[in-house]
Design a protein around this nucleic acid. Structure first.
Lengths: 225, 225
DNA sequence: GACAAGAGTTCTGTATACATTGATGCGGGA
DNA sequence: TCCCGCATCAATGTATACAGAACTCTTGTC
């Protein structure tokens, strides 16, 4: 694996996991010393982060981690509605029924399990990721999948801001199961409707959950680390 | 302006304008000699092209211009329907009425002019570009705009494949005028419907217009020029 | 004659040195 | 006391050298 790939993925994770806060300056020399590699692969990593929208190149001041505001959350969910609804329709049209029946069954099991004592967040999130991949595969549209990939990066960052309520987790799983069933049945209308319901509830949950701070304070100029 | 920016834009134009054909290998040394700059800014330019999807990094064989197939056209228009319809709705909701009334009037003038003797393609394309920007501004959604920017790059490349029929040009202008009027009136439903009509007709036009070749032949290994 | 193994060559990936540009802080003047 | 301008400096932008890997051509063997 290339050094630039390692640096890119590490920095991306740091930003998504809020270990690197918005406004943080990502100096080339600083990061190259941190990873023990030269500036060249760091430059490529920062370039990719900028293309992803996770960072912005400020002329003369280098690359800084991008801000996330409440307005961004609205904008992200607007784009998500456009992409997810279309993806759900296309997936329902071209899906492998068995695959989505399986996902629906697994999701139902998670719903039942989340109503019990244990809360297996990791298992649920893994299942959602598999369902996203299954939808991407079913849509058979690399351009749509590419747009989704970029969008999910930002959504993951926003999601990490607030701790999802356990009750909401169970309801989200039930909504995902509904989407999977609709796709398995091949009903485009129902798949889109179920997606709309899920997105509306998800946005509601994000907006009503207490978050740390939407607008991060100006970070210290000296590097954290 | 940075050398890497110049190289990126020049290469991007070359790909969109089909001066660089799919499968063409973009060697770092070759391109650096062509632009008279070193490999470093060329690497950054190629990296951006790869992020755009206009080129692909082949392990060991460098960066090559990406292919465009009939399947890609279908996929692009599927994504376009998702993005453009949502953008039209949002623009109708948040638009500046005067701006879109002005665009509608200009488009009507172009329609009348295209029905006459002269065919001012450049003027029409410039007007469409201004309308795209106006919609981007009205949606007030940087993530949606970013997705549109990427998509339009690929669409421009596809569009250059076939010469648009003059009759189709006039009808397309009329459809654009319809969209602008709907947005100016603030009717989300009508804006979306008009967009759907335009996209269906555009796709139809692309698919029925004789094109050079959808699948380009394997390019010569030696660089062209 | 065909296939496989090896050496040569050419490419990418990385490191580092140099140039250039923008930021910062100090001093002078209004 | 505030503002403008210049010098200093630090960080980015670029060039180039080196290392490693992949492809290709050649050669030998079956």
């Amino acid at each position: 694996m290339r050094a630039s790939d390692r640096a890119y993925e590490a920095l991306r994770e740091d930003i998504v996991e809020w270990r690197l806060l918005p406004g943080q300056v990502l100096g080339e020399v600083e990061q190259s010393e941190r990873f023990g590699i030269s500036r060249t692969p760091i430059r490529e990593a920062l370039s990719r982060l900028t293309a992803d929208g996770l960072a912005e190149a400020h002329r003369g001041r280098g690359v800084v981690v991008s801000q996330v505001s409440l307005e961004d959350v609205r904008a992200l969910f607007e784009l998500r509605e456009a992409l997810d609804c279309r993806a759900a329709r296309l997936a329902a049209r071209r899906r492998d029924p068995v695959a989505f029946q399986g996902l629906a069954a697994e999701l139902e099991a998670v719903v039942a399990q989340l109503h019990g004592p244990g809360t297996d967040r990791a298992g649920y999130y893994d299942l959602v990721e598999r369902m996203d991949r299954a939808i991407d595969e079913a849509t058979a549209n690399p351009y749509l999948t590419s747009a989704q990939r970029s969008l999910r990066l930002h959504l993951a960052r926003v999601r990490k801001l607030s701790r999802t309520n356990p009750d909401r987790l169970a309801r989200a799983a039930a909504e995902h199961a509904q989407i999977a069933r609709a796709i398995a049945e091949g009903s485009e209308e129902l798949a889109e409707a179920a997606t709309r319901v899920h997105l509306a509830n998800s946005l509601q949950a994000v907006l009503t959950t207490p978050v740390r701070e939407w607008v991060q304070p100006a970070p210290p100029l000296e590097a954290a680390g």
